[in-house]
């Protein structure tokens, strides 16, 4: 029943798509994180001119499917070639690779900024007041008190988001990029052996996700080193 030679035949073909999958994921996760931090911090502002557009952006990108976002970025903006050329952006939007990265980045930015905004709000007020009372500036309070605590708080949720992004890269296959899922689909269409291809491609994603989960666990361990050997009081707020 199980045909190992077939697995050996398709595994290298599928693995050939792994670098692209990882590249898409890494670029959009890193860029998305930077933007998410920026948006989360900007939302601490009291000005509605800053907060409302961000809230709108977040609502739109969390409320619509990633697939629509990718199609809109790729085929939708493709209609505006001349306008985009005029402002020098066509070189970017011409490439399916960059369109996928832009859509993935904006998507993870929206989710990430919500996670971080929640985490920043969860930092006890008392700690912030204490920091201010010893004379730390707003910048230093964020740098040394609020953000480190918020990042640790956000880590489990952000970990989920990273896994979702890895899964999200599979949609890049819809805009001609041949990453693991794109290759898998081609193989199914050629060999008509859905189960074997699924098992093989699935194993690649699971391995990748497992490695990420382990890395995040190690990061969490490292970030909570000051809490170890003490009764835990902070660990129950995240879910």
């Amino acid at each position: 029943m199980i045909d190992f030679s077939f697995f050996l035949e398709i595994l290298p073909k599928l693995l050939a798509g792994l670098p692209l999958t990882m590249e898409l994921a890494l670029t959009s996760i890193v860029a998305g994180f930077v933007l998410a931090v920026t948006l989360a911090l900007a939302q601490q502002s009291e000005s509605p001119f800053v907060v409302l557009p961000i809230r709108g952006f977040v609502a739109v990108f969390r409320g619509t499917p990633l697939l629509v976002q990718i199609f809109l970025t790729y085929y939708g903006l493709g209609q505006f070639r001349h306008q985009l050329s005029a402002i020098g952006l066509w070189a970017v939007f011409r490439e399916p690779y960059w369109c996928a990265i832009i859509a993935l980045t904006l998507n993870t930015t929206a989710y990430g900024s919500e996670i971080l905004r929640g985490a920043i709000q969860s930092v006890p007020r008392g700690l912030v007041e204490a920091a201010r009372s010893v004379g730390l500036s707003t910048y230093l309070t964020y740098r040394h008190v609020i953000l480190p605590l918020a990042f640790r708080q956000a880590l489990p949720s952000y970990g989920n988001e990273i896994i979702l992004m890895i899964k999200g890269t599979s949609l890049a296959s819809i805009v001609t990029l041949m990453e693991v899922t794109g290759i898998a689909q081609g193989l199914i269409a050629q060999t008509y052996r859905a189960f074997e291809v699924f098992i093989c491609a699935g194993a690649i994603y699971l391995t990748l996700n497992f490695a990420i989960i382990r890395a995040l666990a190690a990061l969490e361990y490292w970030m909570s080193r000051h809490l170890r050997h003490r009764p835990s009081t902070m660990s129950d707020a995240a879910s």
Binding site: L171, A184, Q185, A194, A201, Y205, L206
Partner: peptide, 21 residues
């Protein structure tokens, strides 16, 4: 673990092509 870790698109292809088989 499997269905949270594997891309949903892949699961859908599996059921689509594999389900009837």
């Amino acid at each position: 673990t499997v269905f949270r870790g594997v891309p949903d698109l892949l699961t859908i292809y599996l059921l689509y092509y594999g389900g009837s088989v």
